[in-house]
Every structure is written in C-alpha cells, then in structure tokens.
C-alpha cells in the first residue's frame, strides 16, 4: 500500500494531497520564467537527477550532455551541455525552461514538460494510438520542481 501511494505521488495523481499545486493551464509565465513553485513543496535535487537521466521520466539526457552525470551512458547533443545551468539561470527561469521552453526559446526543439494540450495528433504515450482526452503533463509539478532543484546544483566551478 505504501508503495502504491509513493507511485501516485511520483505520477502527480494525488490532486487532493498536493498543497498549492499550480495546474498546467494556470501557470503564470513572466518573460519565460515562473516565479511560483508549481507544487508548493521544495524540489529534491537527487530525485531530479534521476528524472533527468531516466528515459521513461524526463529523459533530458537524450538531448543534453553533462559532466555532472558522466556515469550515465550515451548523452545526446541536441541542446547545450547542462553543466553550469544553475549559474547561467535563475531558479524561476529554469522552472520556465523545464515547464515550457518555448516561452523563452521561440520554436525550440525542447519539449514542454508541464503542458497538457495544444498538441497536434497527441498520442497515448509511445503506443502510436490516439490519446484519450487531455494528456497528463510529461512531468508532474513536483517532478518539475525536483529537476529544477537539480539544475540549481549544476554551478560553474
């Protein structure tokens, strides 16, 4: 039972439990940045690292390389290296980039991780079948916070 509860939290499905969660459609962007925490709970950097480097989660590693996760095999080279991201950007900007990078980088290839609609032919994950109804965001509010917390630890030396 405990295990199931944890899974639900990770998936962001426990709507009632979240304190002040901001729904994807209610996110306020300012110059591409998001000031307010999406979950109301501080991010966990260690968890964020896992999300960033796991294919079935954030899968940032598919497009971004980083010395910081050199232990993970096969880094993509589509986007910039993530080392130093925590020095280059404010927390609010990183939250905006992860939630919807297109708000800062117009037309960027980077997917929006906290968005649920506005897609062309949205599919049901990787099945190739049509999605039924609104999709859950690629990452939950807390997962975005975790990834942001991780990025904040990637400082220039």
């Amino acid at each position: 039972m405990k295990r199931i509860a944890t899974t639900l939290v990770v998936l962001g499905l426990t709507a009632g439990a979240a304190l002040a969660e901001v729904a994807p459609n209610d996110v306020a962007f300012e110059d591409g940045a998001i000031e307010q925490s999406l979950s109301g709970t501080a991010g966990n950097a260690e968890n964020g690292r896992k999300i960033a480097t796991t294919k079935s989660l954030g899968n940032c590693v598919s497009c971004h390389a980083a010395e910081a996760y050199a232990d993970v095999p096969f880094h993509g080279e589509i986007g910039p290296m993530l080392d130093g991201a925590g020095s280059r950007w404010e927390e609010a900007q990183l939250r905006g980039i992860v939630a919807n990078a297109k708000m800062i980088f117009e037309g960027t290839m980077m997917p929006a991780f906290y968005k649920t609609n506005g897609y062309i032919r949205p599919g049901n994950a990787y099945t190739g079948k049509a999605a039924e109804g609104d999709l859950p965001p690629l990452l939950s509010a807390q997962q975005v916070e975790d990834v942001v917390a991780y990025l904040m630890t990637l400082k220039d030396e």
Binding site: Y119, I120, R121, P122, G123, N124, A125, Y126, G128, A131
Partner: peptide, 12 residues
C-alpha cells in the same frame, strides 16, 4: 515513418 511519428508521442 510510422516508428518515427510514434516516437514523438503522437497518433501515427
């Protein structure tokens, strides 16, 4: 093509 479209999490 079908595989590539599916990998965008789309309805192919």
């Amino acid at each position: 093509f079908k595989g590539c479209v599916r990998d965008t999490r789309a309805e192919t």
